[in-house]
Write a protein that binds this DNA or RNA. Structure first.
Length: 158
DNA sequence: CCCTGATTCGC
DNA sequence: GCGAATCAGG
């Protein structure tokens, strides 16, 4: 008997689903036979799928480079969020994005490019607030100038 | 506090 | 090699 639940079929399924961007829990539920979320994660890491490919949570370790004692980083520090448009081929990751049709729950719907464009993609990162990831929610849910009263006026509740 | 993946630890 | 526990990030 194969003491190891990871048969070739399971591993193949694991690779496919993980590559598809499914969460570890989703994969564990899909396999469903004594395979828990941690088991999936452990196997994934052992296979080396988590490294080299894409990850929902890319743990980028900052090598804590020691800057000079005197340094003025950036007074006008823009948020590390890619602009929705205006920068073609600059900050738009060619991979890792999802489409309007393949976007699933908990995936950021921040638009890249124009909706009418065939190259239209969505952020695809795990949503943090509402329909966007934490970074994009900060932009998308920014209250317009004028305060809540302006919104009420727009809603016809004024 | 919830979720996620990544890593560590014991078997 | 296996999974649970634990860690860390968002």
């Amino acid at each position: 008997m194969t003491a190891s639940p990871w048969t070739d079929d399971r591993i193949d399924r694991l690779k496919t689903l993980w590559r598809e961007g499914r969460t570890a829990e989703a994969i564990s539920l899909d396999l469903g036979s004594g395979i828990s979320r941690n088991a999936v994660l452990g196997k994934v890491h052992r296979l080396g799928l988590s490294a080299g490919g894409h990850g929902a949570t890319p743990v980028i370790k900052t090598p804590v480079s020691k800057r000079s004692t005197r340094s003025a980083p950036k007074p006008t520090a823009e948020p590390p969020c890619p602009a929705p448009v205006e920068h073609p081929g600059f900050d738009v990751p060619a991979e890792g994005l999802t489409t309007i049709l393949s976007v699933r729950r908990l995936e950021c719907r921040w638009p890249y490019g124009e909706p009418e464009d065939h190259d239209f993609r969505l952020c695809g990162r795990r949503v943090e607030r509402g329909a966007f990831c934490g970074a994009h929610a900060g932009i998308g849910y920014r209250p317009p100038p004028g305060g809540p009263q302006a919104l009420m006026a727009l809603a016809g509740l004024a």
